[in-house]
Amino acid sequence: MAAPVEWPRAITHSLLYLDGVTVSFDGFRALNNLSLDLAHGEMRAIIGPNGAGKTTMMDVITGKTRPDTGEVLFDNGSIDLTREDEAAIAQLGIGRKFQRPTVFDDHTIEDNVLLALKGGRTVGRNLFWRSNGDAGRIGDILSTIGLAAHRRRLAGTLSHGQKQWLEIGMLIAQDPKLLLVDEPVAGMTDAETMTTARLLKDIAQDHTVIVVEHDMEFVRRLGVKVTVLHEGSVLAEGSIDEVSANARVIEVYLGR
C-alpha cells in the first residue's frame, strides 16, 4: 500500500479514493479497512470470492450504505461521498449497474433509456420536458446494445441477458464520470460474454470504470489492472497474471 506521504497526491489525482473504509452488519465486517484509489480514465477489474464485499463496496460508493469509518472521496478529493445521498451521488456522475439486473419492467425499453438519459432530474423540468433530439440519442444507444429492434417492448418481457444489456445501455445513457458495473456477464453465453467485454472496453475509452466479475476469462479479456478483495479488504493488486500467481490469491480464491 502507498506510504503515508503519498496520500495527498493520490487524493488530488484520483477520481475515486477510498481509505480505511469499514462496514459492519450486526458485528460482521463486510468491509474491513478497505482502501482503493482509481485514476481518471482508468478501468479496474475487481475480483474476489462470494461475500468478499465487492457489492458492499459499490453500495458504499453509491451512497446506499454508510460506512462506519473511513473516507470515500470523489473527483480529486473534492467531494466526500459519505455525506451525499444516492440521488446526489448519481447526479455527481456515478452510474451503477446492479448485480441483479434492475430495469423498469412496466416501461418500454426506450423509456428505460430515456429515464436514464443525462439531463434534468427535477420534477419541474420533467413535467414540461420536450423530446428535442432525445429520440436520436436513444436510438444510438439501443443500437449499441443491440436492442434497437425491441424498443417498444416492455422491459419486463426481456430475458435475463437482455436486461443486463439494457442496464448497460442505461449506464451509457447516463454518461457518468464513473461507472460501477457489478457482474455484467452473469448468466450470459460465452459469445455474449465476449460481446459484453468489447462493449465495456469501448465505454472505457472515455469513462472511468470499475467492473466486478467472477469470470476470469472475461477479466483477462478486459486486460486491465485487477484488485482482489477478500474478507472486506484488498488481498492483492496488479495485472491478471500477477494476481493469478499470487499464492494467497490462489489459496482463497482460485482454489488450486
Binding site: 453509491t62 434492475t102 412496466d106 416501461h107 430515456l114 432530474r121 420536458w129
Partner: peptide, 20 residues
C-alpha cells in the same frame, strides 16, 4: 416524462434513486 419517473418510482424506487 415526470409521469414516467413516477411509474419508475412505483416499480423500482431505489433504482430510480440511483439514476439521480
Amino acid at each position: 416524462k415526470a409521469g414516467k419517473v413516477l411509474i419508475a418510482v412505483r416499480d423500482a424506487e431505489s433504482r430510480t434513486r440511483f439514476l439521480g
